[in-house]
Every structure is written in structure tokens, then in C-alpha cells.
């Protein structure tokens, strides 16, 4: 459909028509320039600097005096005087791989739940009913409360002695004694997941809702008149049409989930069951005297996210150029 315009231009093949196409390109370039400039300006220096630091032995005590050490922060081969060879660096650091695993697990589970729940909530909000406005405002509340506050609030609600969640479960007879949600290695991840899903489902729901709202109503009208079963309408009409919006929402959720920090930093900062890549790289960057090592971990995190997103774009056939369905 889209190429029609361009083709029309070519068919017209008058000089004026072509210049219209050129004009469009020039306008496009003008429109893109401010955004690209802004991003380059803000992001280029900090990002390149982090990558550079990861190849040096910089420490926070001596930020400007780091020396180039190549890949030693990533992987380093050392021969002891006894002749034994040992490997050092992030890539052989079990703590790092534990964090990678935690992060991936956390991201997959939370994004999966958030997508399904978000879509469900969006479908509900897309229906016409009384009090819809208030409900829409209500579901946004979890997303609106600052993370540092909501994480602390949940820490309180999850407390084993005076936490309201345990109190409810006890009163309902599910458990005998309060569960120490954040203390025990077995439940820490579950606790973090519960809070994250609670907190970010509204984000998904709102984006899905925007996608649903962009679908013309007459399509539903037609389907209803034809007597198509609602489930079929959902699978055959709603889902395909909302898919682009959903895909983008998932990408951004995934980016955030893979970098998750605040929530875990407040809720279970040092539990090895929930330590994620961002948390461990902050620990090295700031708390420990290993700024370069932390930069290497941040760079790896960047690489891992890039791989994930590429895989997702490729497997999910996300239409980057916008030409697949034209």
C-alpha cells in the first residue's frame, strides 16, 4: 500500500513529481537531525567512556589515570610461578554468571506475566463500562509510585512479623507462621517478581490499550454483525492489529527488566538469589574499588541486552523497516 505513493511519483515521472520525493527525503533528514543530535550529544560521551574504561585499570580514586590493559577485565590468563595456569576476569567469575542467570530468569518470567496480564487489563479497559475513567486511573497507580518508595512499602508488607501479606495468608489459613519472604533464598526471587509484576503491568496495559484504541471500531462492528465468536475476533483481528504496539512494549519492558536495579537494590540488595547484572556492576563500580571491572560488566550487560533484543526482533519478526505488510 505504502509504495503506492512512490510508484505514483515514478509513473508521473515529471521533474516536479520527482522533486516532491526528494523534498520528502530532505524534510525527513531535517526532522531526524535534532533527535539524532540530541541523542548523540547526551549519550555518546558517557557510553563510549564506559566502554573505554572497561579496557583500562581505572579506579574511582584515580579516574583520569587509568592505563590500557586490553581484555584483562573480561578474561585474563595468568601463569603462576608453579606453572599452573589460572583464568581471571568477569567471564570466569561465577558471581557474574549467577547474576546473568538471575537477570535472565527474572526478565523472562516478569515480562511474560506482565504481557499477558497487561493485555488482559487493556482488553477490559477497552470495553465500555461505567467508571472506566476511574479504573484506568486506579490501575496506573502502581506505576506512578516512585520505585524507591514502592519497594520499601512492599518490604514492609512482606515482613515476616508485621507484614500485612503474611497476616492475610495466616487469617485465610494458608500458612501457620509468617513467611520471611525476602530473607529466604527460596522465596526472595518470588517476592521480587511479585512486586515487579505488580508495578509494571500498568505500563504494558497502557501501551496495549493505546494499540487497541488505534484499531478502527468499524472492524469490530463488521465482525459482530457477521456473528464471529469473540475469541475468534481476538485471535484473528485484535491480536494481529495490536501486535506492533505489543512488540514494542515488550522490547522496552525487556530492556528495563534486563537492567533491573532499584527494586532489587531496595528489596533484597545482597541476596545471591536475586542479585542481577546491574546490581553486581554497581557493587563493583561504586562500593568496591573495581571501577574498570564494573565497567566491563556494564559493557557485557549492554552486549547481552543487544543479543536479546536482536534475537527478539529476528524471531518475533519485528518489522523494523516497516515494509513487511505494505
Amino acid at each position: 500500500m505504502r509504495s503506492d505513493i512512490t510508484r505514483a511519483k515514478h509513473h508521473g515521472s515529471g521533474g516536479g513529481e520527482l522533486s516532491l520525493e526528494a523534498q520528502r527525503r530532505r524534510a525527513a533528514f531535517l526532522f531526524l537531525a535534532p533527535m539524532i543530535l540530541a541523542l548523540f550529544f547526551v549519550a555518546a560521551w558517557p557510553l563510549l567512556r564506559t566502554i573505554y574504561f572497561s579496557f583500562t585499570n581505572t579506579s574511582l580514586t584515580n579516574l583520569y589515570g587509568g592505563e590500557w590493559i586490553g581484555f584483562d577485565n573480561y578474561l585474563q590468563r595468568r601463569e603462576l610461578s608453579s606453572g599452573r595456569v589460572v583464568w581471571r576476569g568477569t567471564l570466569v567469575d561465577p558471581a557474574w554468571w549467577n547474576a546473568v542467570w538471575n537477570t535472565v530468569w527474572f526478565s523472562v518470567v516478569s515480562v511474560l506475566f506482565e504481557t499477558v496480564l497487561g493485555l488482559m487489563v487493556a482488553l477490559v479497559l477497552n470495553a465500555e463500562f461505567k467508571g472506566r475513567g476511574l479504573v484506568r486511573a486506579a490501575i496506573l497507580i502502581p506505576w506512578a509510585i516512585p520505585t524507591i518508595v514502592s519497594a520499601k512499602m512492599w518490604a514492609w508488607m512482606l515482613n515476616d512479623q508485621f507484614g500485612i501479606l503474611n497476616d492475610m495468608l495466616i487469617k485465610l489459613g494458608f500458612i501457620e507462621r509468617g513467611i520471611a519472604w525476602t530473607a529466604s533464598i527460596d522465596t526472595a526471587m518470588t517476592a521480587v517478581l511479585i512486586v515487579d509484576i505488580w508495578k509494571t503491568t500498568p505500563f504494558m496495559a497502557l501501551l496495549c490499550l493505546a494499540g487497541l484504541q488505534m484499531i478502527p471500531r468499524d472492524i469490530y462492528e463488521a465482525a459482530r454483525i457477521d456473528g464471529v465468536h469473540p475469541f475468534k475476533v481476538f485471535w484473528k483481528i485484535t491480536l494481529p492489529l495490536v501486535r506492533p504496539a505489543l512488540m514494542v512494549a515488550v522490547i522496552f519492558r525487556m530492556l528495563d527488566a534486563l537492567r533491573v536495579f532499584d527494586l532489587i537494590y531496595v528489596l533484597t540488595p545482597n541476596s545471591k538469589a536475586t542479585k542481577t547484572m546491574s546490581v553486581i556492576s554497581r557493587e563493583n563500580l561504586i562500593d568496591f574499588d573495581k571501577f574498570a571491572y564494573g565497567s566491563a560488566q556494564s559493557t557485557l550487560l549492554f552486549a547481552i541486552i543487544a543479543i536479546f533484543v536482536s534475537l527478539y526482533i529476528w524471531l518475533g519478526k519485528v518489522d523494523l523497516s516497516g515494509e513487511a505488510n505494505r
Binding site: 541523542l39 564506559t50 556494564s298
Partner: peptide, 21 residues
């Protein structure tokens, strides 16, 4: 994809560079 790449670093890692900027 490049635009997306800007959002792929953890906040804490770009903090020092941003501070300088």
C-alpha cells in the same frame, strides 16, 4: 536499533560520563 542501543546501558554505568558532560 542504534537509538534503542542508547537505552541498553545500566544507569549507574553512564553516571560518571554524564556527570562530566
Amino acid at each position: 536499533v542504534t537509538i534503542l542501543g542508547v537505552s541498553m546501558f545500566p544507569q549507574i554505568a553512564v553516571l560518571a560520563g554524564l556527570f562530566e558532560l
